[in-house]
């Protein structure tokens, strides 16, 4: 077990964004975190990597309690994050963006070593020819890959991937899925928030379903997708429910 989320509750004023969420992540697995919009998935990521401090509950990463640590402290312990809305460091070159990830994360590499890692990561994501371009000038799909690249360059033990497939065309999606499979081969643990159900069915070993901040189901993608509670949760959002049912079958 690499990560244990134990009864974590996050509140914003009166709103309970995360309500006693509990689940565990095994070393090396790819866990899908799904649920309708507003279910508290991104909030949970923010709680894990220290952006929000949970009101109650415990988060244990590799047998060490990390509840309430600052984001950079969590990052240095080997948790990396790719944002849903891409946040490239616009004025820096693509290679500098990825080098930032390699420099300050778990490995704490020197600038030279970090750059070598960054070059490898860029090559594996097909961005090598863009290395010297300012990150702000990339197109959306390239920025998405860069966002993932910055997280991967830290050689994280745990990757929090927030909808990295959203907004990509089918070819780009299958290219990204290949990246995730290669991550599994390298033993990197991944939690992915994803709305594309076929992607979840395709790469995730296990799925946790959140609704209104609570965990309502957990298990293999096949089991979860036929769970009446899950389908019901998505029915609150008819479009999502339809997509969910279409894609899951």
């Amino acid at each position: 077990m690499i990560l244990q989320v134990d009864a974590v509750t996050v509140r914003f004023g009166g709103l309970v964004a995360c309500d006693a969420a509990t689940f565990a992540v095994e070393e090396g697995e790819i866990l899908g975190l799904i649920g309708p919009n507003g279910a508290g998935k991104t909030t949970l990521f923010n709680a894990i990597n220290g952006v929000h401090r949970p009101r109650s509950g415990r988060i244990v990463f590799r047998r060490e309690e990390i509840t309430g640590l600052r984001p950079f402290q969590v990052a240095r312990r080997g948790v990396a994050r790719a944002y849903q809305v891409v946040r490239p460091l616009n004025d820096l070159s693509v290679i500098a963006n990825v080098t930032v990830g390699a420099c300050f994360g778990r490995e704490n590499l020197s600038l030279g070593a970090a750059r070598t890692v960054a070059e490898e990561v860029l090559a594996s994501l097909g961005l090598a020819d863009k290395a010297e371009v300012p990150a702000g000038k990339l197109n959306v799909a390239q920025k998405k890959r860069l966002e993932l690249g910055r997280a991967l360059a830290a050689r994280p033990a745990l990757l929090l991937a927030d909808e990295v497939l959203a907004g990509l065309n089918p070819q780009e999606v299958s290219a990204m899925l290949a990246v995730f499979r290669s991550l599994r081969e390298r033993g990197v643990t991944v939690i992915m928030i994803e709305h594309l159900m076929h992607a979840v069915m395709n790469v995730c070993d296990r799925v946790v379903v959140l609704d209104y901040g609570k965990k309502i189901a957990e298990g293999s993608p096949q089991v979860v997708s036929s769970d009446p509670k899950v389908v019901e949760a998505y029915l609150g959002d008819p479009k999502a429910a339809q997509r969910f049912l279409e894609e899951a079958t």
């Binding site: 990597n49 952006v51 600052r70 984001p71 950079f72 990052a75 240095r76 990396a80 994050r81 944002y83 946040r87 460091l89 616009n90 004025d91 820096l92 930032v100 990830g101 420099c103 300050f104 994360g105 778990r106 704490n108 910055r150 830290a154």
Partner: peptide
Amino acid sequence: EDQDVAMVVG
């Protein structure tokens, strides 16, 4: 460029 991202990368 982005203080929040800087913090999240360590």
